[in-house]
Design a protein around this nucleic acid. Structure first.
Lengths: 152, 152
DNA sequence: CTAGATGCAAACGCTTTGCAAAGAT
DNA sequence: ATCTTTGCAAAGCGTTTGCATCTAG
């Protein structure tokens, strides 16, 4: 038995809304949140309801068609299940999200799985930092700023 | 300038509630969520308010005393800032959380920082899978289960 | 004294749910 | 004809906020 398969929901009816939502998810490779997807869908089907979006996002997720991401503290993002697992680099200043893959991530999973005796199914790696542009912007702003040491 | 320091909030009053909350966070090394901390605090100070918990969790976080974790989809968990960065292994069945450290994680951060020209501040790695016990439990249950291939 | 912190209740934002109507098979 | 899915509105849940009161400094 494949221990990683637990979900039982199925796709019973092939509705227009469902097709549209999945299509939009596939076109928009990026990281959509529920509301962004809702707005996109409304452009083509103005009667689209937000709950339909939520219901289908959950369905797609249960079927393994998309994956849920935790890029910000506020709410979820979704993306179509990538063929190769990739991870995310998030800029703390501008919020830009860069996807990356790195063989070390795979190695890390293997290593940890063995060391802790876990059967690893997947990993989510979110690295935070500052991108080139924001580093530059902060340094520039810094020159025109007063020291704020006394604030403490 | 240290580009990683952005927050400006300070600790102005040394209140009982604040001391209590921080103490509880430190005693309870684990991963507390806001409500768990609230329940603990109420045992010692029955008038403690949930908003005070939230306000101080945020304060502690801004001061860098604790860190916010995203272990489940539902809500946040917090833990006192560890001396060495560690990551989490979460069992998909029983929810057990195991902390681990691995030199490959550090290496990965360095590598990605260079490759993408990011100044890395930190990383959150959450690996999911099945622990020893749950694997065993699933396999055992499996033997007494009917195949569910026809469900589709 | 007085600004900052608290407790309470109400508001908030994202997500889920109950229900009647519409739609797919 | 049946049973799923939809749209709508209302509820749910974790979290935040406004405000009067309290309190540490």
């Amino acid at each position: 038995m494949d221990v990683t398969e637990h979900k039982e929901k199925t796709w019973q009816r092939n509705t227009y809304q469902r097709r549209l939502l999945l299509e939009l998810m596939q076109e928009n490779g990026g990281h959509l949140d529920a509301d962004e997807l809702y707005q996109l869908a409304r452009q083509r089907e103005s009667s689209m309801s937000l709950s339909t979006v939520y219901r289908n996002l959950r369905l797609f997720k249960d079927l393994g068609l998309i994956e849920e991401r935790h890029l910000t503290e506020e709410h979820h993002h979704y993306e179509v299940k990538p063929v190769v697992e990739h991870h995310h680099l998030v800029c703390r200043r501008c919020g830009k999200v860069i996807e990356f893959t790195n063989p070390l991530a795979e190695k890390l999973k293997q290593r940890v799985g063995i060391e802790e005796d876990f059967l690893i199914t997947d990993a989510e790696i979110r690295i935070q930092g500052y991108c080139t542009e924001c580093r530059r912007a902060i340094e520039t702003a810094d020159h025109s700023m007063v020291s704020n040491v006394e604030k403490r």
